[in-house]
Design a protein around this nucleic acid. Structure first.
Lengths: 247, 247
DNA sequence: ACAAAAGTGTTCCCCCTACACCCATGT
DNA sequence: ACATGGGTGTAGGGGGAACACTTTTGT
């Protein structure tokens, strides 16, 4: 009756150098930036499509992945101005004179995009470009380049979603290594909530939940007193899954 | 490339007789129950589609309406068993021998459904059946009949979404009349959160936010002391939109 | 010894909780 | 008068905010 193209766009976030970074793709043609995304195939659920797209682009089999919103502005299109369309067409011809130009259609067509939020450990990813993508970059979410279509709005909605969710669940741990310092943990919260937290009170509040395991001290590197390493106690968390971590 | 049918399903909730009720449609054929829903047309946003479907079914021009999730299970279909399909086909032929049977296809086809939550005042609605719908009913969300497809899951997800949202925003007011009693307000929260709250503390907590206007006493009806009427102070709320109403 | 980071303690105060109490009104 | 529902008060406890203090480690 009314058929639509459905795509999934993944907002893949990592915590690196004290800031939240999002995985962005730089296209060969036109130097456009976009989120990793792709079609939802005929017999595929949105969750499956998102997992496939994430795995293809980052090599991650398992990762935190959650749908957060479906975007449907009828005017949304990856490229909007006629000038950009012709630029892209020219460049495509140069890149591959015999290739079909079907994807030009893709750039200008209206479709529905379902946004997925993914939280990963940057070190565990192996990002890979492909025949359309020039390169992959981890970009500070507060310093985005101009993105195609409404992808900047998608990133914003994703971060807003994360901001709400992290107050009630420890999903942020998906951003940290298996063992981590309390300082990293706090900085991760500060980056997401865009605020500063009292070191001593943060530590007490978190530890009171009894969902972290304290290990022996790290001996290595850093000058001054050696901090403890912590890891997440999945067992105990499942038990008290309803309470929420902050306030 | 991969075209899909996209529909919107509305979970329309009202607060009546102390409980949350959802608007359900009873179909002429097969006595199926379903949520009000419909196609997303070619040049229409999801928001527009949901507003149109809500207006068509309830007569409401303005109402709280918010997207909460997109459902995409490839196996989801309104009618799944072959037996039900043939039953429906027979009944359609009886109802309208010359009509086309295209919508049988609809019942069994895979499509993506975006769920919208709507909060309304039951008294302001004028629900209307149509040529496919036998009747419309407001049903206690805790006492649902068997619904077609995954509509029961959609209702559950909607209520869960409402439960989270109401802790941070006064959307529940969309369920109450312009002027209401503190008792109604509390019962509304209790119905949504499925818990009981201390009367005195609830009142203080709510009033402290300074977003309710207290009017003169109601003289009418009820035996015993006459309670105040309250209404929502939109002005003041906009100012402090970030705080959240319950803890 | 000193500086800086990390861990722990202390104080104050607000707010939540659980009631008790007071007020108003119709029978 | 009294029962009942509605508004207000109060004592106690828990926990968050701010900050001081102690411990550890490399230079």
């Amino acid at each position: 009756m009314f058929l639509h193209e459905n795509v999934v766009d993944c907002v893949v976030l990592a915590f690196d150098e004290g800031v939240l970074k999002v995985l962005l793709l730089k296209w060969k043609v036109g130097s456009f930036w976009s989120l990793p995304g792709g079609y939802v195939m005929s017999q595929e659920s949105l969750d499956d499509a998102a997992a496939r797209i994430l795995a293809d682009r980052t090599g991650l089999g398992e990762a935190y992945l959650e749908q957060f919103h479906t975007f449907s502005d009828p005017t949304r299109a990856f490229v909007s101005s006629p000038k950009d369309v012709s630029t892209v067409t020219e460049m495509m011809k140069e890149l591959d004179p015999k290739g079909d130009l079907g994807f030009i259609d893709w750039l200008t067509k209206r479709f529905l995009s379902t946004g997925y939020l993914s939280l990963v450990r940057l070190s565990e990813t192996k990002v890979s470009p492909d025949f359309l993508i020039d390169s992959c970059h981890w970009i500070d979410v507060t310093k985005l380049p101009p993105l195609g279509g409404d992808h900047d709005r998608i990133v914003g909605t994703a971060v807003e979603h994360l901001r709400k969710a992290i107050r009630y669940s420890p999903i942020g741990l998906s951003l940290l290594p298996e063992r981590f310092l309390m300082k990293d943990f706090q900085q991760m919260y500060e980056a997401i909530l865009d605020t500063s937290l009292d070191r001593s009170n943060f530590q007490r509040k978190i530890l009171k939940h009894n969902i972290l395991i304290r290990h022996e001290k790290r001996m290595s590197g850093g000058a001054h007193r050696a901090p403890y390493l912590y890891s997440f106690d999945h067992q105990r968390y499942s038990a008290k899954a309803r309470s929420g971590l902050l306030s």
